[in-house]
Design a protein around this nucleic acid. Sequence first.
DNA 1: ATGAAAGCGCTAACAG
DNA 2: CTGTTAGCGCTTTCAT
Lengths: 384, 384
Amino acid sequence: METCPKCATPTSVIRAGMIRGKVRFYCKSCDYHFTQEHSLKPSPQKQVHTTIKDIAQLMGVSIATVSRALNNKTDISPNTRDAIQKLALELDYNPNLFAKGFQRGETKTIGVVIPNIKRPFFAGVLSGIQEVANDHGYRVMICQSNESYETEVTNIQGLLASHVDGLLISHSKETTRFNQIKNLFDKGLPMVHFDRICTEVETPKIRQEDFEGAYQLVEHLIQQGYQRIAILAGPPELLISQKRKEGYINALEKHGLPLKPEYMAHGDFSKEFALASVDAWQKLPEPPDAIFAIHYLNAVEIIQYSKELGIEIPKQLGIVGFGDEYLAEIIEPALTVFHLFPQKVGEVAASLLFDVISKKHASQQEDVLVQGQLIIRKSSLKKA
Amino acid sequence: METCPKCATPTSVIRAGMIRGKVRFYCKSCDYHFTQEHSLKPSPQKQVHTTIKDIAQLMGVSIATVSRALNNKTDISPNTRDAIQKLALELDYNPNLFAKGFQRGETKTIGVVIPNIKRPFFAGVLSGIQEVANDHGYRVMICQSNESYETEVTNIQGLLASHVDGLLISHSKETTRFNQIKNLFDKGLPMVHFDRICTEVETPKIRQEDFEGAYQLVEHLIQQGYQRIAILAGPPELLISQKRKEGYINALEKHGLPLKPEYMAHGDFSKEFALASVDAWQKLPEPPDAIFAIHYLNAVEIIQYSKELGIEIPKQLGIVGFGDEYLAEIIEPALTVFHLFPQKVGEVAASLLFDVISKKHASQQEDVLVQGQLIIRKSSLKKA
DNA sequence: ATGAAAGCGCTAACAG
DNA sequence: CTGTTAGCGCTTTCAT
């Protein structure tokens, strides 16, 4: 309470509005009006965060008033509002977003689970997600599974404990059981799958042109005159692996080329496996004259290795891959690829998630295909 | 309240302990004991999150008891504890970490501000940060400044609003004003700088061997017999740019080579600038016979461009760079680099931050140097 | 136009 | 051993 500067009676003083950031008081006993600066900066504020309570005390108003002022609500006098906003600025107050979300039961945070940040594809996706999330006023929490199912489960558990408002997932290559995901989906947690999707749950899924890209790559090889095309695929359980293989098979069939099991290798994307496959193929009575590596890094490794072996590219061996990095352009001969657009994938995935979140219903099956692009370079130009 | 199954009087029934997950009741009016299953799963729980309140109601105990049970506190009977934990498991309850941190005034979240996730260096750093944060039970919130000062300020503001418990920062290349950072530091927010550090605030800083690496690279060039070594540096304001240039200058001086201003270019890391510099150097009466590009991508670009121009590497022109990517190994000729260890940088930065956080004091100046490694490849081997 | 009070999920005294 | 209560920062009725 204030003390009247005239009669020194504290009890009879009441606040009587505000004027230019100063609080006006009125002493009932001596009928006297006076103003007073709010006692600003009581101590060099050593706390990291200012709260509305701090502001309220400094201003001599209630926290409710401060809240109203800071949120530009209607029921508030412009004077008070301005004064409070000015003070808030001075104290560089920023609201505790979690306290804010607390009541609404939301955190304005989404969770992302990916196999590995370091892989350029996922880094690109993240970048896209970030951007869209920012635009929507959401923050992003990222977890890496490192391709381990167990870690993935733990990650999701952790994100859940953080009460994320939604989840974006690309599964580890180990993941084959989806009950955790299914469970969350059933509980109504907004969720979107991308890249390494899961068909057992009816979430929206962002796919890329795995089938289409593979088809185009292989068709391009055929048009260049390659006849014995091998595929270096990934783990058979992985959907992208299946899809790309399907595209490969389809292209061969469409063009009347035989399907030879000995030309199809399923590996783990490792360099060792890639080189071993090349070795194995070279020992065949009829070695392949082109290789489609579904993982771009394997394609690059094969180019390097082939050069070591003295195999001429693209003359003796054509090579194409999936996914475009700077690397594909730099290596010699430059690698023909089906370019994916990781950033775009992230953007689309995040947008879709926010759709689901805002509609406040469980995710609806809704597949989106992010288009890719065939980029032809030297590694497959037999005719040139 | 429960109703006595014998006398149907609800008012006189009291809880009388627990047995095997069932609640025991005692009816005072008819002196009758009975047990009852907690009325599990009242509806197929359609809410995403179970709360301790839900559990408390189902078990017929107070929320305090549930809290104690779930946190393995002492003052609780094993029976009750086990029953509660079992139920919590069934309902797959997980605590709202934010509500938990709310009182303690902490969020168990740290913020990271970097220029760009997509750059392999930062992706590596992030990976290291993630790992350490996970071990400490912290979550990570990532923001990209996209090399914009304004975005950086907004990002930090946002992280602050999220009440992160600490901050890891690598500044944008535009950033030259640090009052925001200084302000937060003064308020006691735990903070650690890495890579793009800022000398104006006494935070712990994770540096890399910028000076040392540059020195080693240039010395190596000199030992290979190169005499006219040019440097393609970055923005002069950028500390890593300064440090690497100092290393360059020092090595030249140590070996009695002249410093020629026309051999020193300050650019923005763009490809255009890199190629333009090469052009300019070639037009000199005495063109350089080696180039030290402080950014590895520029080094790669210069190799490509030199080949186009018909300049022989390493014979006519030696090239070395900073930072090692797969690219450096793949390009022909392979690039001599000073290898940085991004993951390590992330790990060290995060560890240091958690030190500061746990000690609950403002960050103390404490510099850590993450060691790098000279990797010699063909692009600089004039003698070979 | 403003204040008082409840409540979001949880923990931590304080009582029994 | 267990229940009651206050409070973290904020919004939101409900009074005034």
